[in-house]
Simulated assay, not measured.
Amino acid sequence: MSVLELNVKDGIAVITLNRPEAKNAINQAVAETMDRTLDEVESRDDVRVVVLTGAGGSFCAGMDLKAFVAGEKVVTDDKGFAGFVQARLTKPVIAAIEGYALAGGCELALSCDLIVAANNAKFGLPEVKRGLTAGAGGLLRLPRQLPYRVAMELALTGDMADAQRMYDLGLINRLVSAGAAMDGALEMARAIAANAPMSLKATKAVIARQQDWSLDEMFDRQAELIGPVMRSEDAIEGSRAFAEKRAPVWKNR
């Protein structure tokens, strides 16, 4: 049985962490397989959006501490922890979360562009309780995605936060009933996958990068990314399809 599964259908790639007996904790095998899998989905023209989830009713409990003690490498040179948190994916990624998203599992979720979570989900960075630090992006991304003092509280106490609180604070896009996270994520993924591939790529890039742009440069930097989209065949096709009251046929060019 593979520690990670990939299924592609209708423009959506579903990546499933498949170590339910360990609450999908990350070991070396998962990290290395994830690294290769992301290369594959990034290169495939039939993939427009990615969904990341976990098997067995839990998203991910973080780094496998047994693997860590045994000296396993749970980071990859190109993509960091789990072969994921430092990846430069141009395609949108949705986290579908049931159960625990803790430590490195929470950092995986923070690395995604969108989050759909079941109301039984738990989030947290408990590294300080283990003599560790949340070095896989949690301390960097959490203050950008939550209010400063909330991020500080979660990081310093190591306590868990429930899905309702995280939804109320804007960390979660959609809150669904227990067992429905994948259905909710696929519904969102289908809405995204119906859109023009070039437009999706440029839109994600602008939103992800704009926070580091100055007021003087932001429109010029945006123009660099969206210019090819506005001049593309798909721009004409989208406008023509709207006028003709039909679904567009995207060519990704």
Rank of each mutant, 00 (worst) to 15 (best):
A101L: 09
R165V: 05
D162G: 05
I26A: 14
A247R: 13
R190Y: 07
E21R: 13
V51D: 01
N195T: 11
L171F: 12
N119C: 02
R190D: 04
S177F: 03
L225C: 09
E224W: 11
E21P: 13
P126R: 01
M63Y: 12
L200M: 03
A29W: 02
R246D: 07
D113G: 10
D64M: 09
E244M: 12
K251W: 15
A241P: 06
A67R: 08
M182D: 12
V49E: 02
Q211R: 00
D10N: 14
V93Y: 05
G57K: 00
G238I: 14
N27M: 04
E224T: 14
Y167C: 13
K204W: 00
A87W: 04
E21C: 14
V206T: 01
A109P: 06
N195H: 04
Q211I: 00
G105P: 03
L17K: 01
G80E: 07
V249S: 14
I226T: 07
D168W: 12
G137I: 06
P20R: 15
A196I: 01
Q164M: 02
F68L: 09
G137R: 15
S239K: 09
P197T: 01
I236E: 09
R130A: 11
T203M: 04
L102T: 14
V229Q: 11
K122D: 10
E217W: 09
E5L: 10
E127M: 01
M230T: 06
D64T: 10
T90W: 08
A22W: 14
G124L: 02
G71F: 07
G179A: 12
D46G: 05
G83D: 08
G99H: 11
D113R: 10
I15K: 01
Y167D: 15
P147G: 10
A109I: 02
D159F: 03
G99C: 08
R209W: 07
A55W: 02
L146S: 05
G54N: 06
L110E: 07
L169W: 13
I207Y: 11
K201P: 00
V69R: 10
V85K: 12
G170P: 11
L142T: 04
N120G: 04
A223T: 03
R36N: 14
A95M: 05
S111P: 06
L108H: 06
M188H: 06
Q86M: 13
G124F: 01
D10E: 05
V3I: 07
I115S: 00
L17M: 02
A103K: 15
W213I: 01
N18S: 09
R149S: 11
V41R: 00
N195L: 06
V93W: 04
C106W: 09
D113H: 07
A95E: 15
E21Y: 11
V3F: 05
A136K: 00
M218R: 05
K129D: 12
V3E: 03
E237P: 13
V3L: 08
L102S: 14
R240P: 08
N195I: 02
R141F: 05
R149E: 10
L17R: 01
A191H: 00
R174N: 12
